[in-house]
């Protein structure tokens, strides 16, 4: 049985922030619970107070911005993103990743925001959120701030969130048509990514005008392939044309190594997934 704790389910952001300010490190925030409850069972976290967001209004919505972007509330589940017409239309890359997270039950109840706050290095989302240049919307007694996902996730299970701060949503800017793809190699048992790459390219007049590539599962935190993004500019988007530049994309980083995959193997998978994600994104030009 779990150690005892106090359970609170505030109705408003103000009430939630008061509880966070009062209990600070002793409180854990509960959304879908599909990272937190397993972690509590393993004894990895032992909160004195559990702050459940489920009664708070407005956090379950996927809201459109006028410029084409999306605000994804802290209680929006993977399943919501997978089936939402709005999310599929405006951010097909994110919906594609959501449809691959965990198993059916995880997707039914786990949340995007919860996953990002957990900051598991093998999580699928960060690759896409980096490629999409998404922002984390954080509330605290000092007001609201937006933090790029790239800076929010600071390491394995580490984020830039202060003890009195609460994540309200993730903002995803307007997507570039459908020329994006996520490709990963899964751990056979856990389903987590040994390597996962999300690529988004913009093609104008038959040339690559912009590219963003995010890699997850390979290092302690997800990273962008800035050098390759640069090299792709001005090139013709031909399938398989970039093999020569995709060699050792993860080199120079501290690559994860464990029983499931050595650093050498993960590095190889990063290259493979990068090539496949680019090829798949390119195959969607004009679709």
């Amino acid at each position: 049985m779990l150690p005892a704790f106090e359970y609170r389910s505030p109705l408003s952001v103000e009430e939630a922030l008061e509880l966070l300010a009062k209990y600070r490190e002793d409180v854990k925030v509960l959304a879908g619970g599909h990272s937190l409850i397993p972690a509590m069972k393993q004894g990895e976290v032992c909160p004195k107070v559990l702050l459940d967001l489920r009664r708070m209004a407005g956090l379950s919505a996927i809201d459109p911005f006028e410029d084409g972007g999306l605000r994804i509330g802290a209680l929006v589940t993977h399943r919501d993103l997978e089936i939402s017409e709005l999310a599929r239309g405006r951010s097909p890359l994110l919906a594609e990743v959501a449809s691959q997270v965990g198993d059916a039950q995880v997707r039914n109840f786990g949340t995007l925001v919860g996953s990002v706050c957990q900051a598991d290095p093998a999580s699928d989302y960060p690759a896409a959120l980096l490629a999409l240049e998404a922002q984390v919307v954080v509330a605290s007694p000092r007001g609201e701030r937006s933090v790029p996902v790239e800076g929010f996730i600071q390491g394995a299970f580490e984020t830039a969130l202060e003890p009195d701060e609460l994540v309200l949503a993730i903002d995803v800017p307007r997507s570039w048509a459908r020329t994006a793809a996520y490709v990963r190699v899964r751990h056979v048992a856990s389903g987590f990514a040994l390597a996962g790459v999300a690529a988004q390219i913009l093609v104008e007049d038959g040339r690559i005008a912009s590219a963003r590539i995010g890699v997850t599962g390979v290092a302690e935190r997800a990273f962008r392939l800035a050098v390759i993004e640069e090299q792709l500019l001005g090139r013709e988007p031909l399938p398989g044309a970039f093999a020569e530049m995709i060699r050792g994309v993860a080199l120079g980083r501290e690559i994860l190594s464990d029983g499931a995959a050595s650093a050498e193997y993960r590095s190889h998978l990063a290259d493979v997934c990068t090539a496949r994600a680019l090829r798949k994104a390119i195959s969607r030009i004009g679709v």
Binding site: G33, I37, P38, L50, R79, Q105, N108, F109
Partner: peptide, 16 residues
């Protein structure tokens, strides 16, 4: 199933 969605009941608190 909880509100129509399958759930692993070991991964939710009764209070939830």
């Amino acid at each position: 199933t909880l509100d129509g969605l399958t759930l692993k009941a070991c991964t939710r608190l009764a209070v939830q």
